[in-house]
């Protein structure tokens, strides 16, 4: 009887240990899209996923960005039509005269980043050929799940998901709307500008006034005589 009980205990113990071990993901499974949240960090499964980790749905009636634009009609009709394209297989589908246009005809600001201006990259080197998928489209090479491996590491060998969260099309940090789209950048920018402007506001007039004032004093040297005649 005791042996059977011992067997039960061993089996139950093994089952518990097995469940615990099985719940730990191996390193290969750990490759996830977000360097910060990592499937909400330590939760086994909450059913919570970031938007780009979910297969595209057929329709998205409410186009919102969590914590930024919310409500029933958060965008104007034209803005919503652009927003709703962020998950399409062909992000430009249905745009009139699309064939005759250049990328920067519409995406003017996006063509002014360091990768384009300095490294001479073309849009298609990252965004791919036609049809150009939306970056949050599930199968897009630029989807944050695989962006680092499919796109960034073509030049930056060894790029990780965290590395790939560098914002290529950086908003202008001086603009008021950057406080909503990239608040850390906007705050850092304006705090640094405040320090720089404050320093110059204090020391530039100070230096000029000092220079002027010294024109009216004698300058003594070891010769004993003032070097000027007032």
């Amino acid at each position: 009887m005791d042996r059977i009980r011992l067997l039960y205990h061993v089996l139950a113990g093994s089952l518990i240990v097995g469940i615990i071990i099985a719940a730990i993901p191996v390193y290969a499974q750990d490759e996830v899209s977000s360097s910060i949240r990592r499937y909400k960090a330590y939760e086994a499964s909450t059913g919570y996923y970031e938007e780009h980790e979910v297969l595209p749905r057929r329709q998205r009636p409410l186009i919102t960005i969590p914590n930024i634009r919310q409500g029933l009609f958060p965008y104007s009709p034209s803005a919503a039509s652009v927003r709703s394209r962020s998950r399409l297989a062909d992000s430009h589908q249905g745009i009139r005269f699309y064939e005759g246009r250049q990328c920067w005809d519409c995406h003017t600001a996006a063509a002014m980043d360091i990768h384009t201006v300095r490294a001479n990259l073309t849009c298609r080197q990252c965004h791919g050929g036609e049809p150009i998928a939306s970056i949050n489209y599930y199968w897009s090479p630029l989807n944050p799940i695989r962006r680092h491996a499919y796109v960034c590491s073509k030049c930056h060998e060894g790029a990780t998901a965290s590395y790939a969260s560098y914002v290529i099309h950086e908003p202008n940090p001086a603009m008021a709307k950057t406080f909503k789209s990239f608040p850390v950048l906007a705050w850092a920018f304006w705090i640094m500008i405040g320090i720089a402007v404050g320093t110059f506001l204090l020391f530039l007039p100070h230096t000029v006034l000092w220079g002027i004032r010294e024109l009216f004093v004698r300058k003594k040297t070891s010769g004993g005589e003032p070097d000027d005649k007032e």
């Binding site: 360097s35 590395y163 969260s165």
Partner: peptide, 11 residues
């Protein structure tokens, strides 16, 4: 970027 998100480099 092992210790901070990549967008920290923008900042």
């Amino acid at each position: 970027t092992k210790w901070m998100p990549g967008w920290g480099l923008n900042v």
